[in-house]
Simulated scan of single mutants.
Amino acid sequence: MSDGRTTIVVMGDVIDDILVQPLRPVEPDSDTPATITARPGGSAGNAAAWLGFLGAEVAFVGRVGAADAERHAALFRAAGVEPNLTIDPVLPTGAVVSIVEGQSRTMLTQRGANTGFDPASVTDELLARAAVLHLTGYTLFGAADHAQYRALFARARAHGVAISVDCGAASFLRGDGGRRFLDVVAGTTILFPNLDEGRALTGRGEPADVVRVLLNQFPVAALTLGAAGCLVARAGGEQVPIPAVPTAVVDTTGAGDAFAAGFLAEWVRSGSIGRAGSAGVEAAADCVGIIGGRPAERPLATG
């Protein structure tokens, strides 16, 4: 970035994921053989871990249950992420059971300690060294008081910090949900919707039309298109289509989080939305080739 700041501050959910891959069609009222894997997750936590994996300078702000604080802090540090975790003395860490069948996922969610997340835990000290503040729609959807988030966004802008938002889920964005979402995230620099989310927010069907409408409100839009890659654009500039990286799909959990991480890491380095989009689809391809929403381990340092 032009002012020399490179830290990406990610805020939002921490989740313990239980990933279930049935080995044959699920039989109601009976046992179904399955592969069951436990992984750390949460959309924001995943994005932070991918940023660390990609070598970005990243700090994470979230909330966990008291019994899990040291475990999750250690997981973030191992991923190259600076953890800033508050502890909920009553609620457990959030948890999700995901039933994964090919590219389809069914999720059963308990948000747990995430429901008590306080935007004020993103301190002015963190913002003073941040290039970007990144969050996901899941954090906003679970908030009872959006005024706290508006206050945080105002503080971020006062510090000269770009704001990026990953939309989260189309189901939350249809009808009044989309209007409320757009109102809360007004002033955001970069919006990351997938096609379903973009359609819910704009009422348009074609990707180019979705992006065109979004650019009336956001300086940068990065629309993910699954196996078709992504479409990125800056207000006043041309739309740039970027093809997906061919890969064998194992599990789509966290693909959008990895895309946002790849995009932001490159955008902070170069400011190029084209290069950022390419980095995003590469990270997403790496993600769908493994089980779970986070990279398994950091690459070895070179040089």
Rank of each mutant, 00 (worst) to 15 (best):
V10S: 08
R129E: 15
V61H: 02
I242M: 14
A130I: 02
L152K: 08
M1T: 11
R39V: 12
S121H: 09
A143S: 12
T136G: 15
G178T: 05
F76P: 02
A154K: 01
S104E: 15
D16A: 15
F218E: 14
S43G: 13
S121I: 08
L215F: 05
G177W: 02
R180H: 13
V81S: 07
M11E: 10
S121K: 07
A47Q: 13
M107C: 06
D29S: 05
L300E: 15
G187K: 01
V213A: 14
G80T: 03
R71A: 03
S164V: 00
D176E: 15
V14I: 04
A265K: 10
G256R: 08
G65D: 03
A285M: 10
D196E: 11
H159T: 09
Q148I: 04
D251A: 10
E238T: 12
R234Q: 15
A260C: 02
A143H: 01
F117H: 09
V232M: 02
R155M: 02
A79T: 06
N114I: 03
G12A: 04
T37P: 07
V20T: 11
A162P: 07
G236Y: 04
G229D: 14
A222E: 11
D88E: 02
D17T: 07
R275F: 12
D29R: 12
P295G: 07
P83T: 02
G256K: 01
A151F: 01
A261Q: 05
G12M: 02
P92C: 01
R155I: 01
A49H: 01
P40H: 10
A255F: 02
R111V: 09
C167P: 00
V81D: 09
F53D: 15
V14F: 13
G198C: 07
T32I: 03
V97L: 13
G254H: 08
V288T: 08
F76I: 04
F181V: 00
V165T: 01
D88I: 11
G226T: 07
E125P: 11
G237K: 08
A222W: 12
P89G: 08
A260G: 07
E27R: 11
L54S: 01
D29G: 02
C167W: 04
N84Y: 11
T136Q: 14
F218S: 12
G289P: 03
V185D: 14
G116I: 05
G198S: 03
D17H: 03
S121N: 03
T7V: 14
G203L: 08
G175V: 00
A147P: 04
V185F: 11
A261K: 09
V58A: 13
A131V: 04
I99F: 14
R294P: 07
A158V: 05
N46K: 07
D3H: 09
L108D: 10
A74F: 04
D16T: 14
A285H: 06
D166C: 06
A283W: 02
L127M: 08
I190D: 03
L215W: 09
P28S: 05
I242C: 14
R150H: 08
D166M: 06
D31S: 13
R180V: 10
V220T: 15
G42R: 07
A74E: 10
S171G: 12
G52D: 05
E266L: 01
A79Y: 09
L231I: 11
V250H: 14
V58S: 09
L23T: 09
